[in-house]
């Protein structure tokens, strides 16, 4: 996170270097790529809005998740034995021209906005290369330049339950670090970034590969490792929504921590150290 370790602690209110160029480029490429992957992925899901476990699964087989329409024309999301009405959002919704459509995800959330599995696959499978090669390049560079060891490594002290609990309480009270302490990731930040970098992103790439009949021929352990092609598809979908969850929390945290300063630091690399609040009791 810091460009180099400072012998003296920088003062509050001072502008400091925070994010490397490689981190900043990767961040914004990923922001666009993940959005395209999500929206084109929702369109691909619309082609068969049912999820299964195991190797096979089609209409006659039991789905653990399904988005569709009831006989009375209500939108419905069914997970296991439970179903909720989702008319207007999922299953049954009205498009920009006021026409009722019966598709899982609505046109405002998909690429392209009109139904086209072929087009969505062209987008999804091209941007998949950007995501996979970008992650690979970033991980290799972060290992070599020490970013992972220096900024993401969780120390024994940070693993202590009392420390984690303290951090959770600080987050719940919206108390964010000030001064030089703001230059270091706290343990919850480290855990979420490690979860995304080393778990969710590799998982979503591997489950994507696990759905490919070509890859299944030369690397059957990928598909088999997830419990079959339909399980890989289900895990791919779950991982996508965990990434959406990360994105939402990430945006809320940026807004709470000071959106201008945070966004500037991810564009220019410069970050102004937050001041101690005088009125904090």
């Amino acid at each position: 996170m810091t460009e180099h370790s400072e012998p003296t602690q920088p003062a509050q209110g001072q502008l400091v270097r925070r994010h490397r160029l490689s981190t900043r480029i990767w961040h914004w490429v990923n922001a666009v790529t993940l959005l395209v992957m999500l929206m084109s992925g929702l369109m691909i899901f619309n082609a068969h809005p049912r999820l299964y476990w195991g190797e096979y699964g089609a209409n006659a087989d039991a789905a653990w998740l399904e988005i569709g329409a009831t006989q009375s024309g209500e939108g419905m999301l069914r997970i296991g034995g439970g179903a909720i009405r989702t008319t207007g959002v999922l299953g049954v919704w009205t498009d920009g021209e006021g026409k009722e459509k019966r598709r899982a995800f609505p046109s405002w959330s998909t690429i392209p906005s009109h139904y086209s599995l072929a087009d969505a696959r062209v987008w999804h499978l091209a941007f998949a290369w950007v995501l996979a090669l970008g992650l690979l390049a970033y991980l290799v560079r972060s290992l070599l330049n020490g970013h992972i060891r220096r900024d993401l490594h969780i120390t024994a002290r940070e693993w202590r339950p009392s420390h984690i609990w303290h951090d959770i309480r600080d987050h719940a009270r919206l108390r964010f670090p000030s001064g030089a302490a703001a230059l270091h990731y706290n343990v919850l930040q480290k855990l979420s970034y490690i979860g995304v970098l080393f778990v969710l992103l590799p998982l979503i790439i591997l489950t994507g590969l696990g759905m490919s009949p070509g890859t299944d021929a030369w690397a059957p352990w990928v598909t088999q490792g997830f419990g079959g092609r339909q399980s890989a598809r289900s895990i791919h979908f779950i991982a996508a929504f965990l990434l959406v969850g990360f994105f939402l929390v990430h945006i809320v945290m940026v807004i709470l921590a000071g959106p201008i300063n945070e966004v500037r630091s991810m564009i220019t690399g410069n970050y102004r150290l937050p001041k101690e609040k005088d009125d904090a009791k």
């Binding site: 899901f45 082609a47 068969h48 299964y52 089609a58 209409n59 598809r233």
Partner: peptide, 12 residues
């Protein structure tokens, strides 16, 4: 073998 449809479903 497993037949994989472009839509996402599979059948053996």
């Amino acid at each position: 073998t497993r037949h994989d449809c472009v839509e996402g479903w599979s059948a053996i």
